[in-house]
């Protein structure tokens, strides 16, 4: 038997995870609907005036992003933990951090990417002035990978506990704060007409750093949870 290359292992894990999700379409659609629901609740709560909506739009969209990332966190490892797949993965000859990275990518494809696609609709619903749209999109593209990576750490830590939901948000939300601050800062800068690229660059840098380090933390967390 020839040893599969690490890249093959990476893409196999990814493809398998995507396939599992695709078998249950509702898992793909529900987060999207969830984001739309959250976003459309706000105008009902604070009134439809464009001045107030435009000001809180970024915050609302980003909070929706945080919540939808948390919502999708169960899916990351729970089933694999219950049916023993996770244990098999730890025994594979490939570095576990690489396989964890594949899981992070899948999580992003299912919760980050839909958000990026939905962002224009959300911006429209929340009457975000059009000059800030591009910046909002840029922050989402740069920032949502951080969400997926950190969520994966938390999900791996709590997967063996059964009742992870509230605990997971307790662990993760403080870690999301810089993301929230820089993303809304960028959009605000775009709204008042100053340069938003420093914040976007900063987010990109943070994102790369997180993506580099998070797989190792996820791998360590999986090892703790499995034994």
């Amino acid at each position: 038997m020839t040893q599969a290359s690490s890249w093959t292992a990476f893409s196999t894990v990814m493809r398998r995870d995507l396939m599992v999700v695709m078998r249950r379409r509702s898992d793909v659609l529900n987060p999207l609907l969830f984001i739309l629901m959250v976003v459309s609740l706000f105008p009902l709560a604070v009134g439809p005036g464009p001045d107030i909506l435009g000001r809180i739009a970024t915050g609302v969209i980003w909070v929706a992003a945080l919540l939808s990332a948390l919502l999708g966190s169960e899916r990351l490892f729970r089933d694999d933990f219950l049916d023993g797949t996770l244990e098999q993965l730890t025994l594979s000859p490939h570095p576990l951090s690489l396989l964890a990275a594949a899981k992070i990518v899948v999580h992003w494809l299912l919760s980050g990417l839909p958000l990026v696609i939905l962002a224009p609709i959300c911006a429209l619903l929340l009457k975000l002035p059009s000059e800030a749209w591009l910046t909002l999109l840029a922050t989402l593209v740069a920032g949502t990978p951080i969400l997926s990576a950190i969520t994966a750490i938390g999900a791996a830590l709590t997967v063996s506990l059964g009742r992870g939901g509230a605990l997971l948000s307790l662990l993760l939300l403080p870690l999301f704060i810089p993301l929230l601050i820089f993303a809304s800062g960028a959009v605000e800068a775009a709204l008042v007409g100053t340069a938003a690229w420093p914040q976007v660059l900063l987010l990109t840098g943070l994102s790369l750093l997180t993506l580099l380090l998070a797989p190792f933390a996820v791998a360590a967390a999986i090892r703790v949870s499995v034994n």
């Binding site: 950190i150 750490i153 830590l157 709590t158 063996s160 662990l171 403080p174 870690l175 933390a217 360590a220 967390a221 703790v224 949870s225 034994n227």
Partner: peptide, 13 residues
């Protein structure tokens, strides 16, 4: 296990 998991979280933090 709790100490290990909490330790990972503390390092991330």
């Amino acid at each position: 296990n709790g100490a290990k998991a909490a330790g990972i979280l503390a390092m991330v933090g």
